[in-house]
């Protein structure tokens, strides 16, 4: 499976007596949007937390195919997953830096690159031209992404003052600033109105098609899931109950049962 971006094999996560993820295996292809859906409490966010190093999986393995090298994600602890493996994520309840400006949010995402450019602050303190150039580049990258989500004119406002929908989009483009291989989005459409979800779809398709970044998506909003997913994985009680294309998922009796219950 050379074109797989992510291979999750027999992943389990146990919290005391609760088995949150039970022997889960799935893969995500390159340049694809893979959705993980399931009823509340099915273990979707737990999968994300294992992938991005916030939890240590009880057993199983996760491999990321980066530049034709297989990286074992289990070996990276929290921030290193983003720094070394290039897995970015967003959160169910938006986690921006609310008291910092929109542009600063984007700059923090480019921290590691800028830190090296600033010679671990020594060159930066001396105003070295090489650092100033890199900083300018980082601002350009931020501007590029802010232009895409139409937030450039609010770049100097506090991120916490933005409307909810813009905060969601900002969190996604901020994650894109670390130049990820895999972007994990945890319910990006939660709380968005119909127009905003349509814009979100456009943004995600742009990331997939133009930036060739694989996307892993947790979502409840079916207009988003069905509209843009190439592949859908359905979880219930920590187990995978179905896997297939969006259309297949819609018609699958197991999925309907998980969401709506059985007919007596």
């Amino acid at each position: 499976m050379r074109d797989n971006l992510l291979d999750v094999e027999n992943l389990s996560m146990r919290f005391g007596g609760l088995l949150a993820i039970d022997d889960l295996s799935f893969s995500a292809k390159k340049d694809n949007i893979t959705s993980i859906i399931g009823p509340n409490g099915a273990g979707k966010t737990t999968v994300f937390n294992c992938l991005t190093g916030f939890y240590k999986a009880t057993s199983g393995s996760m491999f990321l195919n980066k530049d034709n090298k297989k990286l074992d994600l289990k070996k990276f602890s929290d921030f290193k997953v983003a720094q070394k493996a290039g897995v970015a994520r967003t959160f169910q309840n938006i986690r921006l830096f609310p008291q910092m400006s929109v542009l600063e949010n984007m700059m923090v995402a480019q921290h590691n690159k800028l830190m090296i450019a600033s010679g671990f602050s020594i060159l930066g303190l001396l105003n070295a031209p090489s650092f100033l150039k890199k900083e300018k580049e980082a601002v350009e990258i931020s501007k590029y992404w802010l232009d895409i989500i139409n937030l450039t004119n609010r770049a100097d406002d506090n991120a916490g003052d933005l409307p909810y929908g813009d905060q969601r989009k900002l969190e996604i483009v901020r994650a894109m600033c670390i130049n990820p291989h895999l972007l994990c989005l945890d319910e990006p459409a939660a709380g968005l109105n119909a127009k905003e979800s349509a814009e979100l779809n456009k943004l995600l398709l742009f990331i997939k098609n133009e930036k060739k970044t694989g996307i892993l998506l947790i979502e409840h909003d079916m207009s988003v899931v069905m509209g843009i997913s190439d592949h859908v994985v359905v979880l219930n009680y920590g187990k995978k109950i179905f896997e297939g294309t969006a259309k297949e998922t819609k018609n699958s009796p197991e999925v309907i049962e998980a969401y709506l219950g059985t007919e007596d």
């Binding site: 720094q83 986690r95 600063e104 590691n112 830190m115 671990f120």
Partner: peptide, 27 residues
Amino acid sequence: KIRKLPVGRAWEALREDEIACKSLGVN
């Protein structure tokens, strides 16, 4: 001066949200 450098911004970001910092690869 240092507030305007990457490390200074990372300090403030850490004050705002440590988990978000980790998700962006800030040590």
